[in-house]
């Protein structure tokens, strides 16, 4: 699914990723944990092609295609989805209009027929229900005036409608109360499938009680410094990150 080799990236001339290697197989769930400033969010933004994030060395392939030479929208068409830690508010553009434009664009590139408005509305309403958002949110401006939790659930709703291949969840659990966390985790679990992979970027092992990862990685100083199974997350919860700096 995803293969990253020796990835180096900088933001405003400051090196953040310094030789990151990661391989995620189809259907797998990987958790990336690590201290603040270790480059966890940067990884997602670099893969999505955010302006200002420059790859200085290394490669990243999604489904065998070189991700780094594609435009941002082409990466989405290929099946990449980044759920933002801080989703952007877009007043004046309705959630519905935004979702339809996204779904149409992605389906078009998969050579799937465009959904008519009625079928689309039906799917959008179902997705709303699945993430426990009132349907009124479809008519509001994208994320406009949404609470933190509503924004996260709106990201999840987009992910459900776009049915991506690789989902990167950037601290989707932060700022969620326990009920909202359950809703988000249920949504993610429901989407797990043999041909869809997940990268969960998180600070806390709490999320991993709800979504059991296949692999857990620790990102520190711009590199993966330790990998293991779910028990690594529990160990980190207990011991913190400091002991790993010696490893790094």
């Amino acid at each position: 699914m995803l293969k990253i080799d020796n990835l180096h990236a900088s933001v405003e001339n400051k090196a953040i990723l310094k030789g990151l290697d990661l391989a995620v197989g189809a259907g797998e769930v990987h958790a990336i944990m690590g201290p603040n400033g270790s480059g966890k969010s940067t990884l997602g933004h670099v893969l999505a092609g955010r302006p200002g994030y420059t790859v200085t060395a290394g490669s990243a392939q999604l489904l065998g295609q070189d991700l780094l030479t594609l435009d941002t929208e082409e990466r989405a068409h290929l099946g990449l989805f980044l759920a933002y830690q801080y989703p952007v508010e877009i007043p004046g553009v309705s959630n519905m209009e935004f979702l339809k434009a996204s779904v149409d664009a992605v389906r078009e590139h998969r050579n799937e027929p465009a959904l008519d408005s009625v079928s689309f509305m039906k799917q959008a309403r179902e997705a709303c229900k699945a993430v426990n958002l009132d349907q009124a949110f479809l008519k509001r401006g994208v994320n406009e005036g949404f609470s933190g939790g509503e924004k996260k659930r709106n990201e999840l709703m987009q992910m459900m409608l776009l049915a991506p291949k690789l989902c990167i969840m950037d601290e989707t659990d932060s700022g969620l109360d326990i009920d909202a966390l359950q809703v988000v985790a249920d949504g993610i679990n429901a989407m797990r499938s043999p041909d869809r992979s997940f990268i969960l970027v998180t600070h806390y092992q709490r999320l991993l009680n709800f979504i059991k990862p296949d692999r857990v990685h620790v990102l520190s100083g711009g590199r993966i410094v330790k990998s293991g199974d779910h028990s690594l997350a529990l160990e980190l919860e207990e011991r913190g990150y400091a002991w790993l700096e010696d490893v790094a």
């Binding site: 929208e73 933002y84 553009v93």
Partner: peptide, 26 residues
């Protein structure tokens, strides 16, 4: 960044620009 956000959802740049311009007066 708003433009980029739309593009991460697959919306082509030219369409995203039109959506944001119209959204400004909507």
């Amino acid at each position: 960044l708003t433009l980029h956000y739309l593009r991460t959802r697959g919306v082509p740049r030219d369409e995203a620009e039109v959506m944001l311009s119209y959204g400004f007066i909507n």
